[in-house]
């Protein structure tokens, strides 16, 4: 019974992370309309930034890392990616560029910090509630995901900014001609999504560990979670994330952690086989 509860809690924590990643990624996607692999960068970059900052400013490192990533994302978007987009580069070019970006940053991080797996925190306090181990990180993860989903929903549905985002998602060129400041919003979203990625990366790193390749595998899991149900609706991403996390944890429990990544993809493929039209939101599929 205790095992079951433990798994349940850990699953919700994992699902929370995946939700953050999935929604953060789809926020970015809705603006740029290409698979920005760079999102994985900010998870890794952010986690390692926390690693460095925490040595000087302790827990404030959260804030600094998120700001750091947001600034980096802003600069990269402004001086590189936006320029490519201006040229009406195909999505293949954009994807390859973001792939190059990820490869570059990943390698640089590995050079500086070595490829070894490292922990982000040593002073984790574990609480024992009804026989389950709960750390403060786990609680924060769950809270963060919940808050973010609610916040995102509110912003998208109730604010002018949110309606602009939805307009750009629907039809970018039309939004531009209507006077919506697409470029400005693009930059803001780039920073925000980088911040969310950083948050997810730090939380993951605190709960587990960090290594230079963590971004990629987290990204894939997060995107799969959002694909499972409906990428448009943040609430539904949560459900997808929970399903994914449950399956993943169950398999890991029985077969061991090495299959973690493979399971995610197997699940994705199974889902796509069962429902070829996908449980996918219309907006995000581009016909070949």
């Amino acid at each position: 019974m205790e095992y079951f509860l433990q798994i349940a809690v850990d699953t919700i924590v994992l699902a929370s992370l995946y939700t953050l990643i999935g929604t953060g990624f789809s926020l970015r996607y809705s603006i740029v309309k290409y698979l920005d692999i760079g999102f994985a960068v900010y998870m890794t970059l952010g986690a390692y930034a926390y690693f460095v900052f925490s040595k000087y400013v302790g827990l404030y490192a959260f804030l600094y890392s998120i700001l750091f990533s947001a600034v980096v994302a802003y600069i990269c978007e402004r001086f590189y990616f936006a320029k490519l987009e201006d040229r009406k580069s195909s999505s293949m070019i954009m994807m390859i560029a973001s792939l190059g970006f990820m490869t570059l940053v990943q390698a640089v991080i590995a050079m500086i910090f070595t490829s070894n797996v490292q922990g982000l925190r040593t002073d984790i306090s574990v609480y024992n509630v009804f026989g389950i181990a709960i750390t403060d990180v786990k609680v924060i993860s769950i809270l963060c995901a919940f808050i973010f989903v609610v916040l995102l929903n509110l912003i998208l549905k109730r604010t002018k900014f949110g309606s602009h985002i939805r307009a750009i998602n629907d039809n970018k060129s039309l939004a531009e001609t209507t006077g919506i400041p697409v470029k400005k919003i693009s930059l803001i979203i780039a920073s925000i999504s980088a911040g969310v990625a950083t948050l997810a990366g730090i939380l993951y790193g605190m709960d587990t560990s960090v290594d230079p390749l963590m971004g990629m595998s987290l990204l894939l899991s997060g995107v799969t979670a959002s694909i499972i149900i409906d990428i448009q609706d943040a609430k539904k991403v949560y459900i997808g994330a929970i399903i994914l996390a449950i399956i993943q944890n169950t398999v890991v429990w029985f077969l061991g952690g090495e299959w973690k990544d493979a399971i995610v993809f197997l699940l994705l493929i199974v889902i796509l086989l069962l429902r070829p039209e996908g449980l996918l939101g219309k907006k995000l599929i581009r016909t070949v």
């Binding site: 994807m95 894939l220 061991g256 990544d261 993809f265 493929i269 581009r286």
Partner: peptide
């Protein structure tokens, strides 16, 4: 056959996944 169900960008993402699955098989 499997990947062809994925459209556009998602095909590439799926191919990432396929590589990861193969790597997992080699590794495990």
């Amino acid at each position: 056959k499997v990947l062809s169900r994925l459209k556009g960008d998602y095909y590439t993402l799926g191919s990432f996944g396929a590589n990861i699955i193969l790597f997992s098989l080699f590794m495990n």
